[in-house]
Design a protein around this nucleic acid. Structure first.
Lengths: 193, 193
DNA sequence: TGATTGTATTATAGATCATAACAATTATAC
DNA sequence: GTATAATTGTTATGATCTATAATACAATCA
């Protein structure tokens, strides 16, 4: 509780609070006067999320987190994070590419991509070869290719399990809708520019 | 290019590289020995993404980023980030809730939720009232409610535009598939535990 | 009473992401 | 052919987001 530790910051916050609202005794009886949970499944434990589940951003975010966690549980055994895995896949599909191109294909800022390649190179998975005097050509090492292929195998299994969850064809429909949404939003953004 | 700046780190990396591959002078004549485009770098601009677009995690991530950017462009005018907006919505739907419950409803770790509430409280959008001596009850201030409602109005407009992009019913189907996927993965994770 | 659990907090560290500045190279314009 | 611009990779920095560990205190229960 905040009032306990009395750090300066805490004290400052307390001082700005109307005195009437910080009595030691609280009305424990207070019935969640909201109880607006009339339209929520809610299951007693969780709170009502209001309109959030109907706003695409929220379920998208939750699904993305869930899938990433799932990936980490499965592919964590090969020691790859999602971003690293996709980097290996793209380099594997385009050997000799420049850092700039790989980064932009993945939607990663070039400036942040440097650290990623550094890590992968230090782990002996990726090689920087000279392309011209200002450019590197990226290649997978043998270890990198092995790890990438192991990740692909794991990922294929994951996709099969997603198909189980989503029913026959559901996964394909989801992929199509996601691609359409991303393309539409990217186009809108490009139009604004 | 890395060989240019010669920071200690750079030198260290170069030293660990097989001598044959680190000539100080780049073989300008060397016909980009890469060009190994075993499968062509394709399409001039974008690189091949290999199997990535067929793996749910990747399009999910891209879509989530695109939607979040879209939200920031629209709701940025009211100065709310997605996480802050959803926090306001949940508090508004459940006035008097404990921090713990709001955080877990949103899937945010309690320890990270503290900073979020600090910010919202400092901006005068959220109030911490005493619930009992170790617990705070969260409420929206008048300003907080106004901002939340403004965000909801903006978000409703966004959803309409998503429906345009996804075609009639497409948005609803997408919502359903995302919810099913998240629920399925959460159940699987819970089962593993 | 003493041990356990609940609630909020701080500190810390890692990953992610964006911006700015910079160095060297290459490409282009005049 | 030289001056200028655009590319390419890098570093540095700061803001977010996230996860873990440790702490302080309160409430509950055997």
């Amino acid at each position: 509780m905040r009032a306990i530790q009395k750090s300066p910051r805490v004290i400052a916050r307390e001082q700005t609070r109307p005195p009437g609202s910080l009595p030691g005794k609280a009305p424990k009886v207070t019935p969640k006067f909201s109880a607006l949970a009339e339209d929520e499944p809610d299951a007693g434990l969780g709170l009502a999320l209001g309109p959030l589940p109907g706003y695409l951003g929220y379920p998208l975010r939750r699904a993305q987190i869930a899938v990433f966690e799932d990936f980490m549980l499965a592919a964590g055994s090969v020691g790859l994070r999602p971003g690293q895995f996709s980097t290996l896949v793209v380099i594997g599909a385009n050997p000799g590419s420049k850092q700039t191109d790989v980064a932009s294909a993945l939607g990663i800022q070039g400036t942040n991509f440097v650290a990623m390649i550094n890590q992968l190179e230090e782990r002996g998975l990726v090689e920087r070869r000279v392309f011209d005097r200002r450019t590197y050509a990226l290649h997978l090492t043998d270890d990198g290719r092995k790890l990438m292929e192991a990740g692909v195998a794991l990922q294929e299994a994951q996709e099969a399990s997603y198909e189980e969850i989503l029913g026959p064809g559901g996964r394909q429909i989801l992929l199509g809708l996601l691609a359409r949404l991303t393309a539409g939003l990217d186009a809108r953004k490009a139009g604004r520019r």
